[in-house]
Structure formats: C-alpha cells, structure tokens
Write a protein that binds this DNA or RNA. Structure first.
Lengths: 342, 342
DNA sequence: TTGTAGGCGTTATCAT
DNA sequence: ATGATAACGCCTACAA
C-alpha cells in the first residue's frame, strides 16, 4: 500500500544520497558529479518521477493558474475568446480556472471569492451585465492578484483593459451603408450603461453626421438584449411614419431576434430593409437571412492577446510599481461584407 | 513592504500564542478557551485572514481541481455540458481545469499530461475523434486519478462512462416519422468507429424493421462531419432512383450542412423531404428551416450528473477497491417536436 | 562535490 | 487549554 508517487525523497533513499543532491541532479545544477547526476536521472526515469508542481509553486506562492470569468461561453464570442486564452496559457504552462457569471452579479462575486481563495495568479474577467459595483474586484489588489478586464470593461480608470473599440467600425459601417444608397439608417442599441453601447452610439451619431445626414433619435432604439425587448424595438421602428431602410443591430443575437420579428411582420428582409450586425457569429451563415455586413471582433485573437498580457504582467519584475502603467489596449474591428448577397 | 497575506503565524505572533492555538480557534476545535477563540477570530477578521487552501490541499495531497477535456466548447452540446459540470463543481468547492483537444489526439495527450502534472484530483473527458489508443488515459490509474468518460466514450470495459444512449431515441424518431406517413427514411450517420454512430445505426435498423419496412442500406450514408462530406452524402441520396422523403442527420451541424446543400439543389425542404436531427441546438430556431423533430440529450444535466459522480467517487472511502464498480450510466434522450411546423 | 537545515502554511500528534 | 514539533515535497543558502 506504499503506493505514493515517487518523490525526491524516495529517490534519495534508494540511492543513499541526500534530497538536495537529487534536487540538484534533476535540475542540472552545475556543481554536481556527472555519475551521480546520471544515476539520479536514470532512477527518476525508471520510477516515473514527476516533480510535484503543487509543492514547487506552493513554496514560491505561485499557482500557475489564471482565473477566467466570462458571462457565458454559450455565446460564440466568449467561447472563441476562451479558446484563444487557453492556447496562450498552455504555451506558458499556465492553466485556466474557469467560471461563468451568467450575467448575475452575486454569482460573479462568489466566483471571484472562490478564485481568490484558490490564489489564482491573475484574473481575467468580462463583467456581468449587472455589475455596477467593483469592490469585489478592486479588493484583489490587496492580494496582489492582477486583474485584466476583457471586452466587458468597467467605467473606471487605472485598471487593465483590453477590448475592441467599435467606434471606428461603426462609422465605417455607416459609410458602407451610405455608399450602398441607404439614407434612413436606424440603430438598435444595447443597455445604456454598457460601455459597448456608448461606444456604438457615438460611432452611430458621428457616422451619420459625417455623411451629412441628420441624426434622428427616433431611429435609435434600445434593447435589454432579451428577445421581447428586441421585438419591441423593431416594432417601434416600423411604426414610424418614416420607416428605416437599414437597421444596425447591437450584436448577432439581437440581429437574429430582430430579423425574425421583422419577417413575421411581413417585411421583406434585404429588400425593404437591410439588417447589419456586430460580431459575425459562424451560425449566422445558416440562418434564413445572413447579415449582409457585420463587424468582426476577432475574439480568439483578443483572448490570446489578453492572456499573453497577463502572463507578461506576472513575469515582470515587481519593483516597477513606480511606473504604474495600465494596459489599455483598443483593438480595431473589421468590416466583413457577406459574399452571398449584394 | 511586508505585504504578505496574513497567515496563522502572523496572528499567533500578534497575539502571543502558538500557531496551533490559532489553528484550533479558527477551526472551532472543542478544547479551546472561549476568550482565546474570540480573540483569534476577531483579529483574523480584522486582518482579512483567509486560509491558504493551496497549503491545506498540498498537505492533504488534494487539489480540489477536476480536469475537464472536451473536443471543443464551440459546440453547443459541450458548452452546455461544461456549464453543468461547473455548477456541480462550484457547489462542492471544486474548480475546473479546462482544456480542449480540438479532436487532435496529440493535443489531447499533451493536455492529459499537463493535468497529470498539476495533480488534478480527477479527470472528465470526451475523447477526440482521432483517439484510438487509450494508453495516456489508462496510465492515470497509476497516479490514482480517476477518469470518467463523458459522451464520447471509448470502446473498452471497466472504465467509468456516462453517455446518452440514442438507440431507443432513434427507434422512437422513426416511429414518429412513420406515423407522419414517411416510408422512405434515409440516414446520414457519423464516422463508423464512434460508439455514437454504432448506436444510432442499430437504432435506425431496428426502428425501420419494427415498422415492418425493409432496411435499404442505400439509404444509409455517412459523413466525417465536415461540410464537404455531408454534402457528398446528401447528393448521393438524391441521386438514387428512389429518393428519400425523410432524412435523419447525425447531429445539428450535419443537419445544417445537409439542409443547406439540399436547398441549393433546389429541393423543397419540409415539402419534398423532411429533415430531422439529434441534439437540438438553440441556434436552429433561427435557421431558414428548423428541424421538425430532434432528440434532446440534455447536455447541461448530463454534465452536472457527471461532475457529481466524480465528486462522489473522490469522497468515497478508498478501501472499497474490492467492489470495483464502474459507473456506467446510460441516459435517455427525449424526442422534441417542433411547434412551428407540421 | 555533497550534505544539512530551514522555510513555505497548515494540521495532527504528542506533550505540558 | 495551550504549546512544541513533525510532516507534506521541494528548493537553496550555507556548511563541510
């Protein structure tokens, strides 16, 4: 029943040397006899010895684990993102401790607490939609756990943020619609308090203005991202005397609900009105009416980049807290035009 | 700069007691003075003391971490499943170390090795499509790391398996199609070597037989799950003199590709031919032609159940290795009929 | 070149 | 009721 995993101690005992000798041999320490080194390595091999990383990192008070909290990986954007993170982590021997908030603040707090207790080396988080208080996250600073906010970022300064700025993309999108001859461009935005919403709205306003069109706030609706709310928004737009001939949707889910609603209202999609979207989920290819244009945000790459930043942060010498610099990366979205229509 | 996290030692020093006293006070040990206990607890509170779980589990040689390896969480089935696992894990203070094989055997091996090194307490895995050798997994037994195979299970005995048996569901599905008046029922199956394929095929054969129809192997095509291969299969079926009026697809992805292909061939979906599927992904609601029927496999529940089994396994007293019993749970799928069509 | 000893944070087993 | 000590597996400064 002495079925324990082989340790340096075990090897030392069998070889009648001390554990430090074994440790040195295994780590190719310079001052070690060649024959001893080989003896040790051979036996280690035979025994199938593997260093207990838990013990090593416990000593160094490192875990080599990064916490990742996302609202829901059912969303294609996030499942792509975490895949990118995983890839980068794996390459540097980090692993991911994973949790979903389901856009529930309480759940988010609980997961943050769990991760804190597990002493993750760092935390990457996309905030839940409910999150309007950041105490549970700012607290992590006391524990020297760096936090990088990803995509769903908070409206505060002096924190690390990586996200895709959709302002420019939105302006481009409107330019493209204008070139296609559209003049009545409506917009179904997300909840006001999201940074993502503000960004898109500003892009919308400036984009419209830049084409010398008048910004008509009747053309700007919003949804809380539920199906019902999106349907409301669509109905309102089509009840205007002056109905839009293009509608920009907050994301692909809003897009799907909006198109479905419009279709049921008897509106001819892509004839009477053009729908465009952000995100560009792979599934939209199979829908009855794929978006004619959308803004790709490269979630996989974003995730990869975020994780790489985190790892750099962790491996940076610590004394530099004079030069408190915060990562503040704004990625650029790219306009993708559907090749099936138009 | 003495910015270390508060430990029992720190508390002991400040209170001029020993660490063991602190430990006992914090753990409500019976033989401890009430006043001491309160003093300790108060200071612990003030200092924001939190036990270092890493140290505790290191001592107990437990990690409270379960490895989960899935082919790809981009698939709705797996992202649902891991969500269920996460829920169950969180409730028992376990966390998930997460990896994707992308159906690549080498990657799978590498992730298994990483998890072994990190000393996960247990491993839940859905095999990659390539996996035909199990050495890297069986090896984990030596390390006392229990493995539960989930959904994509190996064709070997004496291992823990949890999966959804689609045999009965397939028979039911055919019964339903028969009742709807369909007599020429075709089947696009997955790769031969998958257990899931064998199961479905047997269900197909028996289901057809039970309706007193003749099993015509010309109606049975297969796909390697790529879009091209699925399209091939569809084309073959419609090149028969006697074309099918119902097609059962291996899963929703095959379904999507098949429907798209058939539509492009000018076939009237749900008029000339009925497509049905397994899996029932939420996205299919938005497609041009949602499946009229599909077999729901409840991935969230399956995932939850699997994780619960794992945790029970880990907390079971160890000596019971006489009664080597293997979990071998077969869940039942449920036939879901679309409410939009027919 | 090799051995010894101390420490990482906690708990359990003695002893007081 | 409390304290001292060993142990978990590994590393490393120091001693030999």
């Amino acid at each position: 029943m002495s079925s324990k995993l082989p340790s340096t101690k075990e090897i030392a005992k069998r070889l009648n040397v001390s554990v430090s000798t074994v440790s040195r041999a295994l780590n190719n320490h310079p001052r070690i006899g060649i024959s001893t080194k080989e003896k040790v390595k051979k036996l280690a091999e035979e025994l199938g010895y593997e260093p207990n990383t838990q013990a090593i990192f416990f000593k160094q008070s490192k875990t080599m684990v990064i916490g990742v909290i996302l609202p829901s990986i059912k969303e294609g954007f996030f499942s792509e993102a975490i895949s990118g993170m995983e890839e980068a982590a794996l390459q540097h021997d980090y692993t991911i401790l994973f949790g979903q908030s389901y856009d529930d603040l309480e759940k988010e707090k609980k997961i943050v607490a769990t991760m804190r207790k597990k002493r993750v080396d760092g935390l990457i988080i996309s905030l839940s939609k409910q999150t309007n208080t950041y105490e549970h996250l700012l607290q992590l600073e006391k524990y020297k756990i760096p936090v990088i906010y990803f995509d769903r970022i908070p409206a505060i300064k002096n924190v690390h943020k990586i996200f895709c700025n959709l302002y420019n993309g939105t302006v481009e999108l409107i330019e493209w619609l204008f070139d296609k001859g559209q003049r009545k461009i409506a917009f179904i935005n997300g909840p006001d308090k999201l940074v993502a919403s503000k960004e898109r709205l500003q892009g919308y306003i400036d984009g419209i203005s830049r084409q010398k069109l008048k910004v008509d706030m009747q053309f700007v609706e919003k949804t809380d991202l539920t199906k019902e709310s999106t349907q409301q928004a669509v109905k309102k737009l089509f009840q205007l005397k002056n109905t839009p001939n293009a509608i920009i949707c907050f994301n692909d889910y809003v897009y799907l609900d909006a198109v479905q609603c419009a279709e049921r209202m008897g509106i001819k999609i892509n004839k009477e009105v053009l729908f465009v979207s952000y995100a560009n989920l792979p599934i939209t290819e199979y829908t009855a009416h794929p978006p004619v244009a959308s803004l790709e945000q490269f979630p996989y790459l974003q995730g990869e980049k975020t994780m790489t930043h985190m790892i750099n942060l962790l491996n940076k010498p610590k004394q530099e807290h004079a030069s408190e610099e915060y990562i503040q990366e704004e990625l650029k979205a790219r306009l993708i035009i559907s090749n099936t229509i138009i």
